[in-house]
Design a protein around this nucleic acid. Sequence first.
DNA 1: TAGCCGCCGCGGTCAGACCAGATGATCAGA
DNA 2: TCTGATCATCTGGTCTGACCGCGGCGGCTA
Lengths: 236, 236
Amino acid sequence: MFQRVQRQPRMYEEVARQIEAAILMNHQRPGDQLPPERELIEHFAVSRSVIRESLKVLAEKGLIEILPGKGAFIREPGSGAVHDALRLYLRRQRDENFARDLTEIRQLLEGETTALAATRATAEDLAKIEAALAGMEAERDNLEKFVQFDLQFHQALATATHNDLMELLLLPITGLLTDMMAHLSPLPRAQEEAIKHHRAILRAVKRRDPAQARRAMKAHLKQFERRVREYQASTS
Amino acid sequence: MFQRVQRQPRMYEEVARQIEAAILMNHQRPGDQLPPERELIEHFAVSRSVIRESLKVLAEKGLIEILPGKGAFIREPGSGAVHDALRLYLRRQRDENFARDLTEIRQLLEGETTALAATRATAEDLAKIEAALAGMEAERDNLEKFVQFDLQFHQALATATHNDLMELLLLPITGLLTDMMAHLSPLPRAQEEAIKHHRAILRAVKRRDPAQARRAMKAHLKQFERRVREYQASTS
DNA sequence: TAGCCGCCGCGGTCAGACCAGATGATCAGA
DNA sequence: TCTGATCATCTGGTCTGACCGCGGCGGCTA
């Protein structure tokens, strides 16, 4: 009902807020240099600690980049901060529903990713996907490298959508799951099955068949989950 | 080919890294209090500036909360940082493909959201969705309030999925788009059409018909886009 | 015993100093 | 003239020590 009374902003928060606002209003453009700390001191009439802590916050948000000996510069808008935040979130989050939520989202995003890739992949994109698959086939006996190529396959697929946002949202999820996979003991024949599925996916993408591509990916993910569940059952 | 030579970590980055690692390893648990700054000084053998700047970074990442007069405490894992980062990203990003990317993702996520809501919505969820729709109908002549209730409708739908990750990814996107809508001039009959679509969505959700719910939402979003394009065409 | 009050521990801010890396002007030598 | 070393002077990074105001706790008082 009642809003918690906001503690009056700490000065470094206020300074950070003002500079952030200036950047968002496009008063400062990417590449521009912020005034040096000792100048901001006078501008805001605060101590250097306040200025420095403000700049740290803005740097962490990905708004500026601080280069020792040179200065602080406005950064190009980019997805780095979101990617990091999402990865950190996925790493810490451990609800009872979390695994289910993650799986649902992955099926959804990655299914559509594959369909989009089938529509938009360039020759170069396809080459990268094929290279990753070839890597999987070559390293089927080295789980660590195998998983690496597996991840590479999914990343190349995401890139092939030419939808940056899709790539941004999907990559941390895929990364987390393949990471987990690397820590599971290999189940018998898991690699062979994975390769079979990946081949089917690539085939559909090359044939420019979005519906079939989506189906193949969803089948792969369902299989993947089944394997994870089997493994969990076998160790509990 | 070559990796850029990594400048040796600044001390406040190193300190932040170590504390973050300790939190992620679960050596520190949510609610735990970090040692006071003056104690960390001795522990790390650095000055208080370094400690303070480290803590600012961790606070910005959402790992700790700093309470003046009390101390620094480990925060419960939460989605706040991701939400903020995603919103900031969406606000700054302006590729030529950005609008297309955003639309694709929204259709995908929100279509599935609606389908999931149809499966999982509780009576309470449904009541909230209905309340939002009622608000839209009551405020059809007040664009600002209308948009607010529209957003509320979509938020309630996202909550009804009971998939936190879905909600997390979708909300900033929905928020951005309805925000943009509020700044467009109202096109004739746009509100009436929107209400009609929302009614259809709610109907399908209440009938527990995921496929129909997804269809209704996708139809609504397509209509929404058409409106936006019309408006852009009429003003260019 | 209930309530006031002051001590103390905490983060927030300040001032001034020095360090190291980057940069550009200057100047000596080829 | 050109080249290269050198140095003054920017920048951010770190250190020190001090003071402020808030929150909590315990002792003191009515």
